[in-house]
Design a binder for these strands. Sequence first.
DNA 1: ATGGATCCACCTATGGATCCCT
DNA 2: AGGGATCCATAGGTGGATCCAT
Lengths: 224, 224
Amino acid sequence: MNNVSAPKTQEELLQRIHNIAGSTLTELSEQQNLTVPANLQHAKGWAGQLIENCLGASAGSRAEPDFPELGIELKTIPLTAAGQPKETTYVCTVPLSGEMTLEWENSWVRRKLNHVLWLPIEADPNIPIGERHIGSGLLCHLTEQQDQILKQDWEEHMELIATGRVDEISAHHGTYLQVRPKAANSHALRETTNEQGERVQTLPRGFYLRTAFTAEVLAQHYMV
Amino acid sequence: MNNVSAPKTQEELLQRIHNIAGSTLTELSEQQNLTVPANLQHAKGWAGQLIENCLGASAGSRAEPDFPELGIELKTIPLTAAGQPKETTYVCTVPLSGEMTLEWENSWVRRKLNHVLWLPIEADPNIPIGERHIGSGLLCHLTEQQDQILKQDWEEHMELIATGRVDEISAHHGTYLQVRPKAANSHALRETTNEQGERVQTLPRGFYLRTAFTAEVLAQHYMV
DNA sequence: ATGGATCCACCTATGGATCCCT
DNA sequence: AGGGATCCATAGGTGGATCCAT
């Protein structure tokens, strides 16, 4: 695998995005001397990591945007044949122990989402993995309205988490932001504190963006 | 069956609505000397007609509101256990031949919907028919916004109908107002004119309100 | 053929489960 | 454990079909 250096400026990043727009995953993987998996069943994050490599994102970083110097997070969006987001978008882990930010403005979720480079990728199951095309990237800040709705979702989730009631949260909650399992399997355990203040084990969770949110992000830019 | 006289004023109608609010279908049917069916499978319109009788609506009228002197249409709304409309609401037949109104303001749909007495009825399948309660009636005019959206839906449908393309309309079309089959069965036929101006047979259709519309009507009044 | 509506099979949206890499 | 995500069974929504009375 080639190690591409980090882009030094936003302009450099946008140039790289422009360069790969229209490429297929096969083309990108050849640049990286990687082979394309026959299916994504056992390589779910493959395309995302391939693109991170191509763009010089800092790999495996924690609690930081993918391009820390630029403060920009990269998110691929798998699109159906109809051009709609096919899947929800993982944002970050839900804090279940340790100190929790209780102000939306300082939260991990908001820091990740405030400045995002959205990159659509074809994901119609009829298209072989290697032949799927990369679309045009969109660099977006949250709109006022999106920020308000995400804030409300996040505050409702965090209220339950902070009071030891994370097990009451289901994926049905939240307009844009969901809480869902994020683990190797349903038996995975992580420490947290229950309503009585006792240490107990629970399933690890992540924050996810519903497709309604990402669809809206895309729609905004179709309208420009 | 008792023949209840038509209410002479809007106040009289509202008084009758108030009187039956909270009653069960068994109570109403006893007043009318009718028996409650075990299920609605072979008596789909039973509750609606029972209530028309109780209120003195003019039976089996055509192209007119249920209370012609008052200009008021009666619509029952079946509610799920969660208080949401369970079914779409039939409005009227789609004109497939003869002269067609092409102005929303004069349309049959708008004349029926502009002034409606909505009457919620419990319709949770776990509740036996006779034990289902009548709710509180809501006498409503269309709001400006509802009128605009219905107008747009209706115009889009009528454009296709008037140009002989009714078969291109599916129930997926329309924000609030749908066009769906309205017939004894899928083999029923009715005369219409195709794109070439020839007389052909097609399935009879009706206009229906989506549950999104009736849910909004109810929600407006919860908010008052 | 209109007015009163509900039935029910299908299909799709998605919630919960899972997978790889570092 | 965190970051990259997609898989897939199933519940729920609803589109098309149907039913009775007049």
